[in-house]
């Protein structure tokens, strides 16, 4: 599976457009991480727990998008974008989306 933020795959032609595919996940922060983060909030700096949490969630959203593309029979997802929004206080939704295509 080729994934890219470009609109083309260099040197190859797109034969079919299979529509939009997306993967998303909603994650909440947990208390343990919150306590560590609130301590870190006093002195500032990177909140490693949250960095990891969001990294994990983003990977999951990305993999779900790829699953959708595979189900459609695509072999590439182009023009991939990410967005993050907070659904409720302390919970965020991470979305990955792009166009599923077949290239040869």
């Amino acid at each position: 599976m080729i994934t890219s933020t470009l609109e083309i795959v260099p040197g190859r032609t797109i034969t079919q457009h299979l529509g939009i595919v997306q993967g998303s996940t909603v994650r909440a922060k947990n208390i343990g991480r919150d306590i560590a983060a609130s301590l870190k909030n006093i002195v500032g700096g990177e909140l490693k727990g949250y960095s990891e949490l969001l990294g994990e969630s983003r990977r999951e959203a990305f993999e779900r998008m790829v699953q959708q593309a595979e189900a459609k029979g695509a072999n590439a997802v182009l023009n991939v974008r990410f967005t993050t929004s907070s659904v409720a206080q302390g919970a965020s939704e991470i979305l990955a989306y792009g166009s599923a295509v077949v290239v040869e």
Binding site: I2, T3, S4, T5, L6, V9, P10, A37, K40, N41, G44, G45, E46, L47, K48, Y50, S51, L54, G55, R58, V80, F82
Partner: peptide, 11 residues
């Protein structure tokens, strides 16, 4: 081509 990303949370 490969999709690459980097992220960080800073307070």
């Amino acid at each position: 081509t490969r999709l690459v990303m980097g992220s960080v949370v800073v307070s």
